[in-house]
Amino acid sequence: MTLETESTVQPLAGQEENAVRPAPQSVGNPTPSITGASKLTEIIVVTSGKGGVGKTTTSASLACGLAQRGKKVAVIDFDIGLRNLDLIMGCERRVVYDFVNVINGDCTLKQALIKDKRIETLYILAASQTRDKDALHAEGVRRVFDELIADGFDYIICDSPAGIEKGAHLAMYYADRAIVVVNPEVSSVRDSDRILGLLASKTARAEKGESKVKEHLLLTRYSPRRVANGEMMSVDDVKEILGVDVIGVIPESQDVLSASNAGTPVILNAESDVAQAYEDAVRRLLGEEVPLRFLQEPKRGFFARMFGG
C-alpha cells in the first residue's frame, strides 16, 4: 500500500520549518546539537497515568498523521520491559535493536530506527524488553533526542508507559508539549490530573523555569449515546474538571481493535470515524482551527434501535 506523503491539508505558515533548517546530517554520524536546531524539533509526550486508555493507539496515529503531511517523525516507545508500539505499528518482526541498545552504544541510532513501510518520513524506535529499570536514564534519552534533532526530525513522539514511575517520568521530561489521553471515566480523569501536576513540576521546562509544557487533553472511547443518556461524562465535563483544552475526541469504535489486530495504525483506515477524529487532532496540533466532530449520536432508525446494530 502506498500513501501520499504530500497531504492535501497545508500546514500553517508558522509550522513550515523545512526552508530554514540546516542541511540534514546522516543519522549514523552523531553531531552535537546545533544551537537553534532544537527549536525546529517539537518533542511531544503522549501520556495518561492510567493504563489501557489508548496512549499507544494515539501515539501511532498522531505520528502517522504528521508524517503523512510530510513531517519527519520519530515515534519512541518508552515502555521499557513491555514493548507494544511495534505491534500497533505492524513492524514487530523488524525490530533488531531498541532504545536501550542505542543508549548503551550497542548500535547506532540509524541501525535501531525502523523506517515505516507505508510512510516515507516515519521512523519507529522500539522499547527494550530488558527488566533492568535503570537501563533508561535522562542523559541517555537526551543524547538520542539531540541526535534526532541534528538529523532534522520535525517531531519526536514519546509514547509513555502507564503509571508515574521512571519510564513515564523520562517520557515527559524533555517534552515541549503533552497530550494527556483520558477516558470519560472517574479513575482516568483523576490520574490525568495527577499527570498534569507532574508536567507542571517534574519536567526539564519546569525545573529550568522555562515556559511551561503545552498541555492538551485527548478523549478516547467517547460514546455520544451514553453521554446523551447521562451515563458518561461529556467533553465539557472533563474539560471543566481538568481545566485543560481538548485537542481531540475519539469515538468508541470496533475499528481500534481491528487496526491493532492488523498492525495498521487506525488513522490509516480512512473510512473510520476514529481515523477522521485523529486527522482532526493532527490538524489542530499543526495549529489549524478545526471544530470537534462525532460528539452527537449518529441518527439510527427505529429498527436499528429495536433490534441492535
Binding site: G197, G230, M233, D237
Partner: peptide
C-alpha cells in the same frame, strides 16, 4: 441505565480540588 455521569463529575470535582 441510571444517569450517573453527574455523580461522577461531582465526585471528581471534590477529589481533584483536594488533591
Amino acid at each position: 441505565t441510571p444517569a450517573t455521569a453527574s455523580l461522577a463529575k461531582e465526585r471528581l470535582r471534590i477529589i481533584v480540588a483536594q488533591e
